[in-house]
Design a protein around this nucleic acid. Sequence first.
DNA 1: CTTGACCTTCCAGTGACTGGAACCCTTATC
DNA 2: GATAAGGGTTCCAGTCACTGGAAGGTCAAG
Lengths: 128, 128
Amino acid sequence: MNISQVSDKTGLPPKTIRYYEEIGLVTPERGANGYRVFEDTHLHKLAFLGRARALGFSIEDCRTLLALYEDDTRASADVKSIARQHLKQINEKIAQLQSMADTLGHLIECCAGDNRPDCPILNDLARH
Amino acid sequence: MNISQVSDKTGLPPKTIRYYEEIGLVTPERGANGYRVFEDTHLHKLAFLGRARALGFSIEDCRTLLALYEDDTRASADVKSIARQHLKQINEKIAQLQSMADTLGHLIECCAGDNRPDCPILNDLARH
DNA sequence: CTTGACCTTCCAGTGACTGGAACCCTTATC
DNA sequence: GATAAGGGTTCCAGTCACTGGAAGGTCAAG
């Protein structure tokens, strides 16, 4: 399989696939012409990576998850621990964004949004 | 005022203040010794920037907001428009993170987290 | 034989800083 | 006057996970 077929099947851009090879997440062989040759195992791994990334896991988490996936003697506790930690960070991020959104929403409501210069948003940013 | 005093008063690290100068957000004079000399106006602008960044505005948005702030003939509608657009992006990001969190939370609940290898989290990531 | 769609590598850029090295200036103390 | 601590300065590299683009090799169809 060539890279564009893998791209189509996994939804990952070719650039991303090459990048994943560069950082050692997949290691496809090369054909006589220098093209990467992907096997089903690579396809499978890349799809795994795509889904893990879609859940927001960092590349390093993905590397660990992939290693755990390949390790028959893994403990599910290890996977769960990574996922829990990640979920915690997501929730913290959500809280932070929500706080921003609340503040912004309030300021926006207070702003007339007309052609006069008075603006509670700027007033708040400039508060002394 | 020297940079560390400005840092103390604004809460911005000196590195960040230098960076803001580099990209033209503030333009302090220099003393005979080459040190940056900050006036109250700079302090004020930097505090403004700190608060705008804390609300998640991009540097380019901050640049625009600062320009609007300094423009007596501004229309509050312009400020409101920037804020609205930003709020929209925040809300989109929250929705995306919330969706991740929901999926992750479900998978975590389903995972025994013991020393056996069976793991619904990995199964989901590896689904065919 | 040419065209167009592939593939390759390599380099640079993204955003908003952050860390570190190497070096200069100021102030206080000995 | 030497020295040491604690400022300040510049410049370069690194972060994260790609993404864009240039320059060039390969392949299949007409």
